[in-house]
Design a protein around this nucleic acid. Structure first.
Length: 464
DNA sequence: CTATGGCACGGATT
DNA sequence: AATCCGTGCCATAG
């Protein structure tokens, strides 16, 4: 009697502990965890995956596709949140390679190179693959080459054009522009790709090509003078550039362009959560997919359950243990997904304006308040958020923690104020302007934000 | 005298 | 317990 209670207690804490661990794992790490659990425990199995006949999405074990089965409900403000098993999302290393180190050199470069190589492997012939691997192993965290093209050409005893051909293919892979030599080249490629599907403003290419340094210092007036168009127009183009291009393809979001010396800590390639609009229509509901890095669903094998009844003695105990472990693992996984679901549900509702209208509208919410609303401990939120990334409806991938950024909206508005200023405003004046727009911060903080955005102090800024 | 940047403190996060 | 971020205070530059 007493013993079983102790055991239950023990189970509960084990459950909790494991859920917490799983919660803090990113999709990629989760995949590894599941793989190892799966191979060490015969009682676990992945059930056959089903795909939605309509959109070819992998479906949960029972029920219909959360997207297609549901009539598009334009009125509903409630986002659709569901867990989506996605397998082919993750790099499978089936092009096994002698030249390519199996052990990650650093997780960042390893992931990025693998990620890119997987996309382009089929487009390349044998020789080109070798060149591609060489180039990809020499990428830095920003996604730039650390070797020069002529250098590589000499190394392979091939003409420069042959190397450039491969580089070109790499650049066109996701993240677009990767494998360039500098931000300028990367942005040129991105602009090119973009122009195939969208209208890009006139002069955008020219500005990137020739005036990138002026652009990063926000000297619109100077650029305008050189090209011979209005400063306002330059500003418009700049806006387009900053919204659509990424000078550092290895980082999945705009880092500090204006201050390249600030190292960005983590790079996110594969999101853990994808937020999009239903049918890609910005007017319809938001859809939130929480990525499960496996195809199909993990469950306790029913065969194993049957088998255990027929076995006896010692082997039975061992099997029992495996079974318990397996069911615990599955429960914890469900718990994790449930928590993630609730978290995202709430988060998306709160940040809806940010998701639909842009950075200006990011609610400065704290993890603690969210935890209060959901009735969980703050450390739970903390774990769930850290180390994960989210793909926004505009396809940009940002760390999930940036949805809790206290200063992003303030900084965006600050940028806006400064770029539309007539004469350079002092920090105090900016503080007042921000206050008028509903943001109260100290003067000192204005200075910090300015520094973060790489904007010079008032007396060093030129008026436009 | 005004505008900024450096340093340190306190609360929130991890 | 360690770290990050917004602020206040103060020295310094202009």
């Amino acid at each position: 009697m007493f013993q079983s209670q102790v055991q239950k207690q023990h189970q509960a804490t084990a459950h909790l502990a494991q859920t917490m661990t799983l919660l803090s794992l990113s999709a990629f790490e989760l995949r590894q965890q599941i793989d190892s659990e799966l191979s060490s425990n015969p009682a676990l199995e992945i059930v056959e995956e089903r795909r939605c006949p309509n959109c070819n999405r992998v479906l949960p074990p029972e029920g219909m596709c959360p997207l297609c089965s549901r009539p598009t409900n334009l009125d509903s403000m409630e986002p659709v949140v569901y867990v989506s098993p996605i397998d082919d999302f993750f790099p499978k290393r089936d092009y096994v390679d002698q030249d390519y180190p199996d052990e990650p050199i650093s997780p960042v470069t390893e992931d990025l190179s693998t990620f890119v190589l997987r996309q382009i492997a089929t487009e390349l012939n044998k020789n080109q693959q070798i060149i591609a691997i060489h180039l990809l192993t020499n990428l830095d965290d920003d996604g730039f080459l650390t070797v020069s093209i002529p250098e590589v050409a000499r190394y392979f005893h091939l003409p420069i054009s042959a190397i450039e051909e491969v580089q070109r293919i790499i650049q066109l892979a996701e993240p677009i522009g990767v494998g360039s030599i500098d931000p300028r080249q990367a942005m040129k490629v991105q602009l090119e790709v973009l122009s195939e599907s969208t209208v890009v403003p006139e002069y955008a290419f020219e500005i990137i090509n020739e005036y990138l340094d002026l652009l990063s210092r926000r000297q619109y007036g100077e650029i305008a003078k050189n090209i011979g168009i209005s400063a306002q127009r330059v500003e418009k183009i700049s806006e387009f550039i900053s919204e659509n291009l990424n000078p550092f393809p290895g980082r999945s979001h705009w880092g500090s362009v204006r201050n390249p010396s600030t190292p960005e800590t983590t790079v996110y390639h594969q999101p853990d959560v994808i937020i999009s609009f239903m049918n890609d229509n910005p007017k319809s509901q938001l859809v939130v997919e929480i990525i499960m890095p496996i195809g199909g669903t993990l469950q306790v094998s029913s065969l194993y359950k049957k088998a255990i009844k027929q076995s006896e003695g010692e082997s039975r105990d061992a099997m029992r243990e495996d079974l318990d472990k397996a069911s615990l693992f599955v429960k914890c996984l469900q718990q994790r997904n449930h928590t993630m679901q609730r978290l995202m549900q709430r988060l998306v509702v709160i940040q809806k304006n940010y998701l639909t209208k842009g950075e200006k509208y990011l609610e400065p919410i704290t993890r603690a308040t969210l935890a209060g609303e959901l009735g969980v401990h703050e450390s739970t939120i903390s774990r769930a958020v850290s180390g994960k990334s989210v793909q926004l409806p505009n396809k940009r991938i940002v760390p999930m923690s940036s949805l809790f950024d206290r200063s992003l909206s303030a900084r965006t508005i600050l940028r806006e104020i400064i770029s539309s200023e007539v004469k350079p405003l002092s920090d105090t004046e900016i503080q007042i302007k921000l206050d008028e727009r509903g943001i109260q911060v100290a003067r000192r903080t204005v200075a910090k934000y300015r520094a973060m955005e790489g904007i010079l102090p008032a007396h060093l800024r030129q008026s436009t």
